[in-house]
Amino acid sequence: DESNKPILLPNESQSFERSVQLLDQIPSYDTHKIAVLYVGEGQSNSELAILSNEHGSYRYTEFLTGLGRLIELKDCQPDKVYLGGLDVCGEDGQFTYCWHDDIMQAVFHIATLMPTKDVDKHRCDKKRHLGNDFVSIVYNDSGEDFKLGTIKGQFNFVHVIVTPLDYECNLVSLQCRKDMEGLVDTSVAKIVSDRNLPFVARQMALHANMASQVHHSRSNPTDIYPSKWIARLRHIKRLRQRICEEAAYSNPSLPLVHPPSHSKAPAQTPAEPTPGYEVGQRKRLISSVEDFTE
């Protein structure tokens, strides 16, 4: 099969070098950035008060330690540790928490760990991170309901609301924008112990962030949302095809390698009803078989 044979790379090609550099910018793992907010007593309706908090309760602090690993920003190499735009020179604080497994990295933009500057009256330095995160974990210690939209931002799609209760338990629920209701189930609340709260809140936030990324990708319907490693695979396959075309153009005697095509017509299947918005969006999480067989 010609399409699977190794090909020689061009010795000097600026377009090839640019493509390789672009490939280096696509990590081999999925990345997520999640905002974390603490809401104190009497702050449920005040964005400024929430963003001005420099610490929270003892249970909130224990919750943070379970979310991930504490890292010092100045020691991080952005090409190895995903920071979601946090500055490593102290502009966004000294520490944050991050978490990773074999296929993804997540960083938490924690408002109480970011510096509260006197010259920044409206807390814009914090909002440029927190307001651009799709998902926020809100530790609501106010005793009042927290409403979506209290923290203004164009991309605040989903809130994971943590409400501490007695007996070391917590109520965990989801809020989302109306255009996200087909992807996020907000109907079920959970009672979770303090011990298990970081794991549950983190998983709910990661799932909500993946759904938000799919939702946000609708602005470019021709580019369905893939995982990062599938995006790398697609980029490599496009690069291979372009090299083959350039080689055939410079030397017409060489065969032009095309991806294999299936001449056999697909079997006719009964027509199915058109899937609704929710089903269609969830299918976009699934990769096409052509990603692996071309």
Rank of each mutant, 00 (worst) to 15 (best):
S3M: 09
N4K: 09
L9N: 09
P10L: 13
N11K: 07
S13K: 06
E17H: 09
L22D: 15
P27W: 05
S28Y: 14
D30M: 05
H32T: 04
H32K: 01
I34S: 01
I34G: 01
A35W: 02
L37H: 02
L37Y: 14
L37C: 03
Y38H: 00
Y38E: 01
E41Y: 12
G42M: 03
G42S: 03
N45P: 02
S46Y: 03
A49G: 06
A49E: 05
I50L: 02
S52P: 02
H55G: 15
S57G: 03
Y58D: 03
E62T: 05
F63G: 00
L64R: 01
T65N: 15
T65D: 10
G66Y: 01
L67Q: 00
R69V: 09
L70H: 06
L70E: 05
I71A: 07
E72F: 08
L73Q: 15
L73R: 14
K74E: 06
C76A: 11
P78T: 11
P78I: 13
V81H: 13
G84R: 12
G85V: 03
G85N: 12
L86K: 12
C89F: 10
G90F: 06
E91A: 12
H100G: 14
D101R: 01
I103F: 13
M104Q: 14
H109V: 05
T112K: 02
T112L: 00
L113K: 05
P115N: 05
P115T: 07
T116C: 11
K117Q: 08
K117I: 09
D118I: 13
K121S: 13
H122D: 15
R123F: 15
R123M: 15
C124I: 13
C124D: 15
H129P: 04
H129V: 10
D133K: 03
V135N: 00
I137V: 03
I137T: 00
S142E: 01
G143P: 01
E144A: 07
E144S: 09
D145Y: 05
D145I: 05
K147I: 07
G149M: 04
K152P: 11
F155C: 15
F155N: 14
N156C: 07
N156K: 02
N156S: 09
V160P: 00
I161Y: 01
V162M: 02
P164W: 00
L165H: 02
Y167K: 02
Y167E: 04
E168P: 01
E168F: 04
C169R: 03
C169G: 05
N170L: 01
L171E: 05
V172T: 01
S173H: 11
D179M: 04
E181H: 13
V184H: 02
T186G: 06
V188C: 12
A189C: 13
I191E: 04
N196V: 04
P198R: 00
A201Q: 01
R202K: 05
Q203E: 13
A211Q: 03
H215W: 10
S219I: 09
T222E: 13
I224D: 10
Y225D: 13
Y225E: 14
P226N: 06
P226S: 05
W229Q: 12
R232P: 12
H235K: 06
R240W: 07
E245G: 14
S250E: 13
N251G: 06
P252C: 11
H258M: 10
P260S: 14
Q268H: 10
T269E: 11
A271Y: 08
E272L: 08
E272P: 09
E272C: 08
T274A: 10
V279F: 12
V279D: 15
Q281M: 09
L285F: 12
L285E: 13
L285C: 09
L285H: 11
I286K: 13
F292M: 15
F292A: 15
T293I: 03
